[in-house]
Nucleic acid binder design. Sequence first.
DNA 1: TCCAAACCGATAATGGGTTATCACTATCAC
DNA 2: GTGATAGTGATAACCCATTATCGGTTTGGA
Lengths: 133, 133
Amino acid sequence: MAAKPRNTEQKRAVCRAFEEADGPLSAQLVWERAKAFAPSLGIATVYRCIKELIAQDEVQLVESPIGPMYERSPRHHHHFFCSSCQRAFCIAGCVPGWKSLAPQGFKVLSHELSLSGLCADCAQATTPEKNAP
Amino acid sequence: MAAKPRNTEQKRAVCRAFEEADGPLSAQLVWERAKAFAPSLGIATVYRCIKELIAQDEVQLVESPIGPMYERSPRHHHHFFCSSCQRAFCIAGCVPGWKSLAPQGFKVLSHELSLSGLCADCAQATTPEKNAP
DNA sequence: TCCAAACCGATAATGGGTTATCACTATCAC
DNA sequence: GTGATAGTGATAACCCATTATCGGTTTGGA
Protein backbone atom coordinates (compact mmCIF):
# COMPACT_ATOMS: atom_id res chain seq x y z
CA MET A 1 0.00 0.00 0.00
CA ALA A 2 2.57 2.54 1.10
CA ALA A 3 5.11 3.13 -1.62
CA LYS A 4 8.71 2.43 -0.75
CA PRO A 5 10.84 5.49 -1.37
CA ARG A 6 13.97 4.89 -3.41
CA ASN A 7 17.43 6.23 -2.99
CA THR A 8 18.10 8.16 -6.16
CA GLU A 9 20.88 10.38 -7.40
CA GLN A 10 18.48 13.33 -7.59
CA LYS A 11 17.35 13.06 -3.99
CA ARG A 12 20.93 12.78 -2.85
CA ALA A 13 21.81 15.86 -4.87
CA VAL A 14 19.03 17.94 -3.34
CA CYS A 15 19.89 16.79 0.18
CA ARG A 16 23.52 17.63 -0.42
CA ALA A 17 22.60 21.11 -1.61
CA PHE A 18 20.82 21.67 1.69
CA GLU A 19 23.63 20.14 3.72
CA GLU A 20 26.25 22.34 2.16
CA ALA A 21 24.18 25.53 2.35
CA ASP A 22 25.00 28.06 5.04
CA GLY A 23 21.49 29.51 5.15
CA PRO A 24 18.06 29.37 3.57
CA LEU A 25 17.87 28.75 -0.18
CA SER A 26 15.16 29.52 -2.67
CA ALA A 27 13.92 26.60 -4.77
CA GLN A 28 15.81 28.06 -7.71
CA LEU A 29 19.03 28.18 -5.69
CA VAL A 30 18.53 24.61 -4.52
CA TRP A 31 18.13 23.67 -8.16
CA GLU A 32 21.27 25.49 -9.26
CA ARG A 33 23.39 23.99 -6.51
CA ALA A 34 22.00 20.48 -6.75
CA LYS A 35 22.66 20.41 -10.48
CA ALA A 36 26.35 20.35 -9.61
CA PHE A 37 25.76 16.83 -8.29
CA ALA A 38 23.07 15.74 -10.77
CA PRO A 39 23.38 17.79 -13.94
CA SER A 40 20.18 16.61 -15.58
CA LEU A 41 18.08 17.52 -12.52
CA GLY A 42 14.73 19.13 -13.30
CA ILE A 43 13.03 21.84 -11.26
CA ALA A 44 9.97 19.65 -10.72
CA THR A 45 12.12 17.06 -9.01
CA VAL A 46 13.56 19.74 -6.78
CA TYR A 47 10.07 20.67 -5.61
CA ARG A 48 9.16 17.01 -5.18
CA CYS A 49 12.21 16.43 -3.02
CA ILE A 50 11.65 19.58 -0.98
CA LYS A 51 8.07 18.50 -0.35
CA GLU A 52 9.26 15.09 0.79
CA LEU A 53 11.94 16.58 3.03
CA ILE A 54 9.42 18.95 4.60
CA ALA A 55 7.06 16.04 5.26
CA GLN A 56 9.95 14.30 7.00
CA ASP A 57 10.69 17.45 9.02
CA GLU A 58 14.17 17.58 7.61
CA VAL A 59 13.58 20.85 5.82
CA GLN A 60 11.54 23.91 6.73
CA LEU A 61 9.91 26.72 4.83
CA VAL A 62 11.23 30.18 5.65
CA GLU A 63 9.07 33.18 4.74
CA SER A 64 11.20 36.12 3.73
CA PRO A 65 10.91 39.52 2.10
CA ILE A 66 12.88 37.99 -0.74
CA GLY A 67 10.33 35.22 -1.23
CA PRO A 68 9.83 31.68 0.03
CA MET A 69 13.02 29.88 1.00
CA TYR A 70 13.91 26.50 2.44
CA GLU A 71 16.53 25.26 4.86
CA ARG A 72 17.44 22.15 6.82
CA SER A 73 15.49 21.98 10.05
CA PRO A 74 17.95 23.41 12.48
CA ARG A 75 18.18 24.20 16.10
CA HIS A 76 16.31 27.41 16.76
CA HIS A 77 17.75 30.52 15.16
CA HIS A 78 16.79 33.58 13.16
CA HIS A 79 17.59 35.26 9.87
CA PHE A 80 19.08 38.34 8.35
CA PHE A 81 17.97 39.39 4.87
CA CYS A 82 20.20 41.71 2.92
CA SER A 83 18.08 44.20 1.03
CA SER A 84 20.90 44.88 -1.37
CA CYS A 85 22.20 41.49 -2.54
CA GLN A 86 19.01 39.62 -1.63
CA ARG A 87 20.87 36.94 0.27
CA ALA A 88 19.69 35.31 3.48
CA PHE A 89 21.88 34.62 6.49
CA CYS A 90 21.38 32.62 9.64
CA ILE A 91 21.81 34.34 12.97
CA ALA A 92 22.81 32.53 16.11
CA GLY A 93 21.16 33.44 19.37
CA CYS A 94 17.72 34.64 20.27
CA VAL A 95 15.97 37.49 21.97
CA PRO A 96 14.57 37.07 25.46
CA GLY A 97 11.08 38.04 26.37
CA TRP A 98 9.27 37.31 23.14
CA LYS A 99 6.84 34.96 24.78
CA SER A 100 5.48 37.60 27.08
CA LEU A 101 4.60 39.98 24.27
CA ALA A 102 1.45 38.12 23.27
CA PRO A 103 -1.79 39.40 24.78
CA GLN A 104 -3.56 37.56 27.56
CA GLY A 105 -5.04 34.27 26.43
CA PHE A 106 -2.95 33.92 23.32
CA LYS A 107 -1.01 30.71 22.89
CA VAL A 108 2.36 31.36 21.31
CA LEU A 109 3.64 28.28 19.51
CA SER A 110 6.52 29.78 17.57
CA HIS A 111 8.24 32.99 16.80
CA GLU A 112 10.40 34.31 14.03
CA LEU A 113 12.66 37.30 14.19
CA SER A 114 13.98 38.66 10.95
CA LEU A 115 16.47 41.45 10.65
CA SER A 116 16.85 43.40 7.44
CA GLY A 117 19.53 45.72 6.26
CA LEU A 118 22.91 45.38 4.65
CA CYS A 119 25.18 42.39 5.01
CA ALA A 120 28.86 42.99 5.73
CA ASP A 121 29.78 42.92 2.05
CA CYS A 122 27.10 45.37 0.98
CA ALA A 123 27.58 47.63 4.00
CA GLN A 124 31.23 47.96 3.12
CA ALA A 125 30.51 48.48 -0.57
CA THR A 126 28.08 51.31 0.08
CA THR A 127 30.23 53.10 2.64
CA PRO A 128 33.74 52.65 1.27
CA GLU A 129 35.06 55.98 2.56
CA LYS A 130 36.25 54.38 5.76
CA ASN A 131 38.69 51.93 4.21
CA ALA A 132 39.16 53.48 0.81
CA PRO A 133 42.84 54.01 -0.09
CA MET B 1 3.50 67.54 -15.40
CA ALA B 2 2.59 66.04 -12.05
CA ALA B 3 -1.04 64.97 -11.95
CA LYS B 4 -3.17 66.48 -9.22
CA PRO B 5 -4.71 63.70 -7.17
CA ARG B 6 -8.41 64.05 -6.54
CA ASN B 7 -10.42 63.41 -3.45
CA THR B 8 -12.76 60.61 -4.38
CA GLU B 9 -15.27 58.51 -2.53
CA GLN B 10 -13.22 55.40 -3.29
CA LYS B 11 -10.01 56.73 -1.81
CA ARG B 12 -11.87 57.87 1.27
CA ALA B 13 -13.41 54.43 1.62
CA VAL B 14 -10.05 52.65 1.43
CA CYS B 15 -8.47 55.06 3.90
CA ARG B 16 -11.32 54.56 6.26
CA ALA B 17 -10.98 50.78 6.05
CA PHE B 18 -7.38 51.15 7.18
CA GLU B 19 -8.24 53.65 9.89
CA GLU B 20 -10.86 51.40 11.41
CA ALA B 21 -8.77 48.25 11.18
CA ASP B 22 -7.16 46.92 14.33
CA GLY B 23 -4.38 45.14 12.53
CA PRO B 24 -2.97 44.27 9.12
CA LEU B 25 -5.47 43.54 6.35
CA SER B 26 -5.08 41.59 3.13
CA ALA B 27 -6.02 43.41 -0.06
CA GLN B 28 -9.18 41.31 -0.18
CA LEU B 29 -10.11 42.33 3.35
CA VAL B 30 -9.50 45.98 2.58
CA TRP B 31 -11.83 45.56 -0.37
CA GLU B 32 -14.54 43.89 1.67
CA ARG B 33 -14.44 46.51 4.39
CA ALA B 34 -14.13 49.51 2.10
CA LYS B 35 -17.14 48.34 0.10
CA ALA B 36 -19.21 49.19 3.16
CA PHE B 37 -18.43 52.84 2.43
CA ALA B 38 -18.35 52.65 -1.38
CA PRO B 39 -20.40 49.67 -2.53
CA SER B 40 -19.38 49.79 -6.17
CA LEU B 41 -15.69 49.73 -5.31
CA GLY B 42 -13.55 47.53 -7.56
CA ILE B 43 -10.53 45.49 -6.50
CA ALA B 44 -8.30 47.31 -8.97
CA THR B 45 -9.07 50.60 -7.27
CA VAL B 46 -8.19 49.06 -3.92
CA TYR B 47 -4.74 48.15 -5.25
CA ARG B 48 -4.37 51.58 -6.82
CA CYS B 49 -5.16 53.26 -3.52
CA ILE B 50 -2.91 50.97 -1.53
CA LYS B 51 -0.07 51.71 -3.92
CA GLU B 52 -0.66 55.42 -3.52
CA LEU B 53 -0.84 55.18 0.26
CA ILE B 54 2.38 53.19 0.37
CA ALA B 55 4.08 55.80 -1.80
CA GLN B 56 2.94 58.41 0.72
CA ASP B 57 4.26 56.26 3.58
CA GLU B 58 0.81 56.10 5.10
CA VAL B 59 0.50 52.36 4.66
CA GLN B 60 3.05 49.57 4.86
CA LEU B 61 3.36 46.08 3.48
CA VAL B 62 3.48 43.33 6.10
CA GLU B 63 4.84 39.93 5.07
CA SER B 64 3.04 37.14 6.86
CA PRO B 65 2.63 33.36 6.77
CA ILE B 66 -0.94 34.09 5.72
CA GLY B 67 0.18 36.14 2.72
CA PRO B 68 0.87 39.80 1.99
CA MET B 69 -1.02 42.24 4.18
CA TYR B 70 -1.18 46.00 4.60
CA GLU B 71 -1.61 48.33 7.54
CA ARG B 72 -1.38 52.01 8.37
CA SER B 73 2.21 53.00 9.07
CA PRO B 74 2.27 52.85 12.80
CA ARG B 75 4.69 53.37 15.58
CA HIS B 76 6.94 50.36 15.84
CA HIS B 77 5.25 47.16 16.84
CA HIS B 78 5.02 43.48 15.94
CA HIS B 79 2.45 40.89 14.90
CA PHE B 80 0.80 37.73 15.97
CA PHE B 81 -0.61 35.40 13.33
CA CYS B 82 -3.22 32.89 14.37
CA SER B 83 -2.62 29.64 12.55
CA SER B 84 -6.20 28.58 13.16
CA CYS B 85 -8.41 31.50 12.10
CA GLN B 86 -5.76 33.09 9.89
CA ARG B 87 -6.19 36.50 11.46
CA ALA B 88 -3.39 38.95 12.17
CA PHE B 89 -3.02 40.93 15.39
CA CYS B 90 -0.81 43.80 16.41
CA ILE B 91 1.37 43.38 19.47
CA ALA B 92 2.53 46.29 21.56
CA GLY B 93 6.06 46.34 22.87
CA CYS B 94 9.30 45.06 21.55
CA VAL B 95 12.12 42.74 22.47
CA PRO B 96 15.44 44.10 23.65
CA GLY B 97 18.73 43.01 22.22
CA TRP B 98 17.72 42.35 18.63
CA LYS B 99 20.27 44.76 17.24
CA SER B 100 23.19 42.93 18.73
CA LEU B 101 22.25 39.63 17.12
CA ALA B 102 23.59 40.58 13.70
CA PRO B 103 27.12 39.46 12.91
CA GLN B 104 30.02 41.88 12.89
CA GLY B 105 29.87 44.34 10.00
CA PHE B 106 26.19 43.88 9.28
CA LYS B 107 24.05 46.98 9.21
CA VAL B 108 20.63 46.32 10.70
CA LEU B 109 18.05 48.72 9.32
CA SER B 110 14.88 47.08 10.52
CA HIS B 111 13.57 44.05 12.31
CA GLU B 112 10.33 42.19 12.41
CA LEU B 113 9.22 39.79 15.09
CA SER B 114 6.28 37.58 14.33
CA LEU B 115 4.66 35.26 16.79
CA SER B 116 2.49 32.40 15.63
CA GLY B 117 0.07 30.22 17.47
CA LEU B 118 -3.50 30.46 18.61
CA CYS B 119 -5.33 33.68 19.35
CA ALA B 120 -7.39 33.91 22.50
CA ASP B 121 -10.58 32.83 20.70
CA CYS B 122 -9.02 29.80 19.05
CA ALA B 123 -7.01 28.83 22.11
CA GLN B 124 -10.18 28.75 24.13
CA ALA B 125 -12.09 26.89 21.42
CA THR B 126 -9.52 24.11 21.18
CA THR B 127 -9.11 23.64 24.94
CA PRO B 128 -12.61 24.12 26.30
CA GLU B 129 -12.22 21.68 29.17
CA LYS B 130 -11.14 24.43 31.54
CA ASN B 131 -14.29 26.46 31.33
CA ALA B 132 -16.74 23.87 30.08
CA PRO B 133 -19.87 23.58 32.24
C1' DT C 1 -21.81 75.52 -15.96
C1' DC C 2 -18.15 73.39 -18.60
C1' DC C 3 -14.68 70.33 -19.87
C1' DA C 4 -9.83 68.35 -19.61
C1' DA C 5 -8.17 64.80 -17.42
C1' DA C 6 -7.86 62.12 -13.23
C1' DC C 7 -10.33 58.31 -11.81
C1' DC C 8 -13.31 54.38 -11.92
C1' DG C 9 -15.01 49.20 -12.52
C1' DA C 10 -14.72 45.08 -14.99
C1' DT C 11 -11.88 42.05 -16.65
C1' DA C 12 -8.05 40.28 -19.24
C1' DA C 13 -3.31 39.77 -18.69
C1' DT C 14 0.90 39.22 -16.13
C1' DG C 15 4.36 37.12 -13.25
C1' DG C 16 6.42 34.03 -10.15
C1' DG C 17 6.21 30.08 -7.43
C1' DT C 18 4.47 25.60 -7.44
C1' DT C 19 2.09 21.35 -9.17
C1' DA C 20 0.06 17.99 -12.56
C1' DT C 21 0.80 15.26 -16.58
C1' DC C 22 2.92 11.81 -19.20
C1' DA C 23 6.14 9.05 -21.57
C1' DC C 24 10.46 7.36 -20.39
C1' DT C 25 14.13 5.58 -16.92
C1' DA C 26 16.34 3.75 -12.84
C1' DT C 27 15.89 1.19 -8.63
C1' DC C 28 15.84 -2.90 -6.09
C1' DA C 29 13.45 -7.22 -4.27
C1' DC C 30 13.30 -11.39 -6.28
C1' DG D 1 19.15 -10.57 -14.83
C1' DT D 2 14.12 -9.32 -14.65
C1' DG D 3 10.15 -6.83 -13.96
C1' DA D 4 6.94 -4.09 -11.23
C1' DT D 5 6.85 0.40 -10.12
C1' DA D 6 8.74 4.61 -7.88
C1' DG D 7 11.07 8.27 -9.80
C1' DT D 8 12.37 11.56 -13.40
C1' DG D 9 12.58 15.73 -16.92
C1' DA D 10 10.17 18.74 -19.80
C1' DT D 11 6.60 21.42 -19.97
C1' DA D 12 1.88 22.73 -19.68
C1' DA D 13 -1.12 24.08 -16.29
C1' DC D 14 -2.43 26.08 -12.03
C1' DC D 15 -2.96 29.44 -8.35
C1' DC D 16 -3.13 33.89 -6.54
C1' DA D 17 -1.71 38.49 -5.93
C1' DT D 18 -1.16 42.25 -8.59
C1' DT D 19 -1.29 45.27 -12.80
C1' DA D 20 -2.62 46.92 -17.47
C1' DT D 21 -6.30 48.07 -20.48
C1' DC D 22 -10.19 50.59 -21.90
C1' DG D 23 -14.54 52.78 -22.34
C1' DG D 24 -17.30 55.30 -19.40
C1' DT D 25 -17.63 58.53 -15.09
C1' DT D 26 -16.54 62.03 -11.71
C1' DT D 27 -13.89 65.84 -10.06
C1' DG D 28 -12.77 70.52 -9.54
C1' DG D 29 -10.54 74.77 -11.43
C1' DA D 30 -11.89 78.32 -14.64
